[in-house]
Design a protein around this nucleic acid. Structure first.
Lengths: 155, 155
DNA sequence: TAATATTAGTTAGATAACTAACAATAATGG
DNA sequence: CCATTATTGTTAGTTATCTAACTAATATTA
């Protein structure tokens, strides 16, 4: 597995990242269930951290997701009364999504339910190491994103 | 986004990893298509690198995947004549999957088609940095895997 | 200003993963 | 040695994502 050639390194890297993503998403999904899945939680959390009253299109871009996927997620959140969706008056193509009190409460429950898992990871993994790799991952993500947009763009 | 509290760090980390996984998988899928998807390529590549004549169950574990998912992937590879699947005589529950010559050729084409993308990444990202973060990611992956098995195990 | 292009969101259909439940076989232990 | 348990792989059904194609509204341009 310890590939010494550069392409092998990149391949190993994406391989590890893929497995971590799968394992971590599955774990988060389990502790969040049955109220929310990770995508729905992510939207509620974004609203709490960065403010609500965003358009579906903005959210799709923020989460690196296609518009139809965001439509589906927002539809589920709306049915649960965790968000409200109204048409914009300035631009009647647009919709505006806002968080409800129930949505904020659901997000807080989500945070609480994930805390033990985060604690376990903090206990057994070197936080300093994890902090050190974050900038490299961010740079890689930004590069892939820019490169993708250069080729085709997210429709 | 630069969370200073530990739980926020972990959340940011998994967030970056999730986006990188999505972007990189989509890119690899695009260059591999239409012959193979990344999962199918992964199985062929595993055979070339680590030897074939594995059981579906072994492969499912190796790829952190459920057995039904591996059944589906192997079915597609078998229909393309890239692998052969025969029953084991020693243990008649088991099947044994082997790579065909066509499968090896398909894997080689896959490697060739991914080379330009790997080259672009190598050109624009600091390979030394990427190499440095790999052990940390491996440790995190191993921890999540062990932790998962401690709780329930992959069915 | 009318025609064209772009943007926002939705609908329809495909795909690839998952869980649950099952049949067939092998291993274990009273 | 037989009954129970575990393992291997499949089938059936669900889910979350995607792409393609569409409508409606706005912006651009000839």
């Amino acid at each position: 597995m310890s590939d010494s050639n550069p392409a092998g390194l990149i391949f190993s890297l994406f391989n590890e990242i893929g497995i971590i993503n799968q394992l971590s998403t599955a774990r988060f999904a389990k502790v969040l269930a049955p109220d929310l899945n990770p995508s729905e939680f992510g939207v509620l959390n974004h609203f709490v951290r960065l403010g609500d009253a965003k358009s579906p299109s903005y959210l799709a871009k923020a989460f690196q997701m296609t518009k139809p996927s965001m439509t589906a997620i927002l539809g589920k959140l709306e049915r649960k009364r965790y968000v409200e969706i109204v048409g914009s008056v300035e631009d009647r193509r647009r919709k505006i999504v806002t968080l409800t009190d129930a949505g904020r409460a659901a997000r807080d429950r989500g945070i609480a339910s994930m805390a033990p898992l985060a604690a376990i990871i903090m206990e057994h993994q070197d936080l300093g190491e994890l902090e050190k790799i974050l900038p490299t991952l961010q740079a890689l993500r930004e590069f892939l994103d820019a490169e993708r947009n250069a080729v085709d763009g997210l429709t």
